[in-house]
Design a protein around this nucleic acid. Structure first.
Lengths: 190, 190
DNA sequence: ACGGACATGTAACACGTTACATGATTAA
DNA sequence: TTAATCATGTAACGTGTTACATGTCCGT
């Protein structure tokens, strides 16, 4: 069971950090394929400490709340390695976008086109972000960043090449007209 | 908020079905990018019914528990469309595999190689499965299946092309030796 | 005799999110 | 002065999983 706790151990294996810093590092690095919030990180660290997998030193700071800097114990490092060695479970993907595409028949074609436009732009930009990260870090870190970038690019390309499948109405309406202009935002109120 | 309830509405928009059948259809179609279990589907249908979004007819069956066949109401269909029209949130990916790769330095290189071998095989096989599905269904359904297939393929190719980044030890040990043979399964105990 | 597919449902549990509570510093 | 960053933590809530409860039929 790979949960927030393991993730915390992992981040700590790269260097000591406070709960706050762990969150930041997870955002930088893992945000593309794993999420975690303060509400899960702080309790996780607390429990890891009672289990002896991490140790903390309170660093007093002037004008700021004390900072609890955590570090891995030997046991914690062993647990991490054991956890990482477990055969990884299947990736879990939860994509509202793909659900919407699956039921594209129920949506106005223009709306579908807009969603795809946005998605392509998002993926290109996220891919570019990861491409930058691919230049830095350890080989393993570059490997993971590159993986993300490759998938974002593959997704964007697929969308570009196959969008006609879900935009049939638009296809009939304007065979080779401009694809980006002319659509008003449909305010989908709750 | 795109949850199991919306998914149920979606499946029902393709035809009436019982809770059990909804589960099966979700398995076939969505299993690659969305999960749902009986424990979430049955309560969801119940609540959808009290909210008037679905209607049920009990079909009596000899020698089997009665089957509750659900169908969408007009309101349900409207709700579904409204929901699908909401700008889709970001995809959530949770990959134990990528977490393990990120910390590959902590693992024996052989172990990493094995994980990658398995992952490539899995992705190729899941991709092939989707490729079959790509031949059937509506255009939208083929679009989504194709998307999945494209991503599985991209991932598998990336892993093949870049695995050396996380297998440096293995790389030093056997420059161009056979990559698949010779590794014994390391029993990763609990 | 055993497991798997069919069929529905509940309860306990795990996990994570969001919002709340508190409070200083710094840049726009 | 308003928002953002730094900094920790709790409580309520939502959502989903797993296991349990029940029972038949069919294939091996």
């Amino acid at each position: 069971m790979m949960d927030v706790r393991t993730l915390c151990l992992g981040v700590l294996s790269l260097g000591d950090a406070s709960g706050y810093e762990i969150k930041k590092r997870l955002e930088n690095v893992f945000s593309h394929f794993y999420d975690a919030s303060f509400g899960s990180i702080y309790p996780a660290l607390k429990r890891l400490q009672t289990e002896g997998l991490v140790r903390s030193e309170t660093e007093q700071q002037a004008k700021r709340p004390d900072k609890k800097v955590y570090s891995l114990t030997v046991e914690g490092r062993l647990t991490l390695v054991r956890e990482l060695n477990n055969p990884p479970g299947r990736d879990r993907v939860r994509s509202e976008f793909l659900v919407a595409m699956f039921f594209a028949d129920l949506l106005p074609a223009g709306q579908v086109g807009e969603m795809i436009d946005r998605r392509i732009a998002e993926h290109r930009s996220l891919g570019a972000e990861l491409a930058e990260r691919e230049a830095r870090g350890t080989a393993a870190q570059r490997f993971v960043a590159g993986y993300g970038r490759a998938l974002y690019e593959a997704a964007a390309s697929y969308l570009e090449d196959n969008r006609y499948l879900v935009e049939s109405e638009a296809l009939l309406a304007q065979i080779d007209g401009d694809r980006t202009g002319g659509r008003t935002g449909a305010g989908a109120g709750n």
